[in-house]
């Protein structure tokens, strides 16, 4: 097994402590990753504690319309007199939830398809890869837009649409990892011991194929958050009542010449979260030693 420890992508369970140290080392060194962890942590906390932290009801309309940032309304109010800070805070819940749920779904489905295709080969591989290639003919975001058009708007539909749009990346990575791993001797060994295909896939192949998948997942969370914001912005998002970042921007767009805060702050929130995730993703890539071209 000793030759397997050279590349952490092939690391085995016995390397876990080593890998942990490596994480710690990379994150201790990397200022950007620290920034990312802190900012993302703050936003996560804000999302969880939104009911307690939010100074106003995010949908409560008042006569105090389009007033700039002040002591009373930290980030100002919108055209209906709603408090912008409260709306952005509540929007964090949707954005983070959609980001994580989408990627979770895309990861499970994509990896499943990729592992099946890579492990069995033959006609299963052909059918799955034909489909994946078909997805290649469309930019991911266009797929998401089209699927939302087909399914209709709403939280679940948006999650499914974005997940399906991003699934091909996971399938392709998982498949290529499986194709490499399949040739390894420890897989032969498992097979000789009479383990079932399912057990070999789940216990032997999957854990060793996870490094690039994890890196891709991190990157995808940031894409998913951007995609959700873009869909909401285009009016194809969750629904018109729930304050999401994209929707707040889209609502505020008509008033930006008089109320700059409506155009600036929601986008700033999106950028900070996505930036943090990208920083963390970059550090993970270093820690797990995944080459950029693999992902």
């Amino acid at each position: 097994m000793s030759d397997l420890t050279v590349n952490p992508a092939n690391a085995t369970v016995a390397d876990a402590p080593k890998r942990k140290n490596r994480f710690r080392a990379v994150f201790a060194r990397d200022r950007k990753a620290q920034f990312g962890l802190i900012v993302l942590g703050l936003f996560t906390l804000g999302a969880i504690l939104a009911p307690f932290l939010s100074p106003y009801d995010p949908n409560e309309m008042t006569l105090n319309m389009m007033s700039g940032p002040s002591g009373e309304n930290v980030l100002g109010t919108d055209d209906l007199g709603r408090d912008l800070f409260s709306r952005i805070l509540w929007g964090t819940q949707i954005s983070l939830f959609v980001g994580v749920a989408t990627v979770g779904l895309a990861l499970v489905l994509g990896v499943l398809l990729g592992v099946l295709a890579g492990y069995y080969g033959g006609w299963i591989d052909m059918i799955i890869m034909r489909y994946i290639d078909l997805q290649w003919a469309f930019p991911n975001f266009i797929i998401a837009v089209y699927l939302v058009a087909v399914f209709g708007t709403g939280l679940l539909n948006v999650i499914v649409a974005i997940a399906l749009a991003f699934l091909d990346d996971f399938a392709r990575i998982a498949r290529s990892m499986v194709l490499t791993l399949k040739e390894e001797q420890f897989i032969d060994a498992a097979r000789v011991q009479g383990y079932s295909d399912l057990r070999i896939m789940l216990r032997h192949i999957l854990p060793n194929a996870m490094a690039p998948v994890i890196v891709q997942a991190t990157v995808s969370v940031s894409y998913a958050i951007l995609a959700e914001a873009s869909l909401s912005f285009l009016g194809l998002g969750v629904n018109p009542v729930t304050p999401t970042w994209g929707l707040i921007l889209s609502d505020g767009r008509s008033f930006i010449s008089r109320a700059w805060w409506l155009g600036v702050f929601p986008g700033l929130a999106i950028m900070l979260v996505v930036l943090s995730i990208n920083f963390i993703g970059d550090a993970l890539r270093d820690a797990l030693d995944v080459r950029e071209t693999d992902v």
Binding site: A229, I270, N278
Partner: peptide
Amino acid sequence: AFLGLSMPDFWLAIILII
């Protein structure tokens, strides 16, 4: 590069308009 990747293009568009 990081900022460019993280900025939603429609937000940048709004900022540029402002």
